[in-house]
Write a protein that binds this DNA or RNA. Structure first.
Lengths: 221, 221
DNA sequence: AAACTTTACGAACGATCGTATTATTTGTTT
DNA sequence: AAACAAATAATACGATCGTTCGTAAAGTTT
């Protein structure tokens, strides 16, 4: 119609974005229940009701935070990997980018989804449903990429894509958890990297590309 | 000394135990912050101040819950394994018992420590410190057992005990998380079992005992 | 039985939670 | 300038939180 940019909506989007930015970071430390409208409004110097009005309920805020976290995750972990050739290379790239994403503390509490998924795993509700869906996407991406790799002849025909995806996820998630818990930003990620590449190397065919042998060490965050 | 059993202390211990029993189970679902004295007192039909008096503060209740959870964990996962011969057999037994412990839902939210460790990983304080210590014990137990196995000649000399412990923990924790999230009590644990035995098989020397071959499922060719 | 200890209760406190209502500011449309 | 729309603020509500205090009940010691 008429308005190219409605300054009101524009302002609204901006604060909404600011709220969610802060919300996901808090939630990565304190969880989505630890999030409180009061704290959020205090830190952002916005009225509590102002924050509230943007979402209508705390649950909606939590759902919006999950979606916001998802976007950050895609930007840091998935995006570049999808530009990489399918198969082992992409699989390795996903793991590598995940490690950088966790290690560089994109969220101050480490992987946002690790924290909030552990929080809502056993609690029915819409937030859990949203997290289940996000988790399913991530799992399927890893599994399909492993399937691609096998079909391309880069993984031995005996390799089980679902199992490999499970193992890789396990290494990544555990590196995140151990790093935070032991306050060590090196060893856990190094172990995860070693475990990941060993697993890929063990299943790779002779013809498969081996991106993990290219440099000495991968770029640090 | 006179009193063999002071009825007052005895009664106190009993309710304290009842409180902690309920507390760890709630915390395995809702976290240690989700725990509330009000809810606890309501469910146990004890006055809120009565519950409170046993611990003196919420933080002390949380610390007591961690200790209570530790005892349950030892009873279900560590105890029998320590009666098993050191080395690969014990290592496998630890994993096996961990899987049963998680899968049988000793805590209704799955592994108590998975939930509450994810909750406090990034939050300084005494609760976190206690969880770090518990985690360190578990990590060291796995690592030392792997070292034993290597020294006994049951694992190849190239095997890295710390790395193996990391990988095993990763499989177990992830099985717990995925099982709760996907509401599947079979597949994730089956995957973890496969991954664990494959890892042990890959590192085992020809002379090593292979307790995982005694049952129904055989290692993949 | 009196003195004392320990457990448990009941009521209340101040703080904070999420939420609802009503008003004000800011920007757009006519 | 008037009418309108959207974002933000001010205020208050009921519920729940962790905690404190004073007291009653149960059990032990003297």
């Amino acid at each position: 119609m008429t308005t190219q940019t409605d300054g009101r909506l524009q302002r609204g989007d901006q604060t909404r974005r600011a709220v969610l930015d802060r919300a996901v970071d808090i939630a990565s430390v304190e969880g989505l229940d630890g999030l409180s409208l009061g704290r959020l409004s205090r830190e952002l110097r916005i009225s509590k009701s102002g924050v509230f009005a943007h979402f209508g309920s705390k649950e909606e805020l939590q759902l919006a935070a999950v979606e916001a976290g998802r976007k950050v995750f895609v930007r840091h972990v998935v995006r570049e990997a999808l530009r990489t050739r399918p198969g082992v290379e992409r699989l390795w790239r996903l793991c590598e980018d995940w490690i950088v994403y966790s290690r560089s503390r994109v969220f101050s509490g480490g992987c946002f989804f690790y924290t909030v998924t552990a929080e809502f795993e056993s609690r029915p509700g819409r937030v859990r449903d949203a997290l289940v869906e996000t988790h399913r996407e991530w799992r399927d991406l890893l599994t399909r990429t492993a399937e691609d790799a096998r079909q391309l002849g880069e993984l031995t025909s005996g390799a089980d894509p679902a199992l490999l995806a499970f193992e890789l996820r396990a290494f990544l998630d555990t590196a995140n958890a151990v790093s935070l818990l032991e306050d060590d930003r090196d060893a856990p990620y190094a172990m995860a990297r070693t475990a990941v590449t060993a697993r890929l190397e063990a299943l790779a065919t002779p013809e498969a590309p081996r991106p993990w042998t290219s440099g000495s060490t991968a770029p640090t965050a």
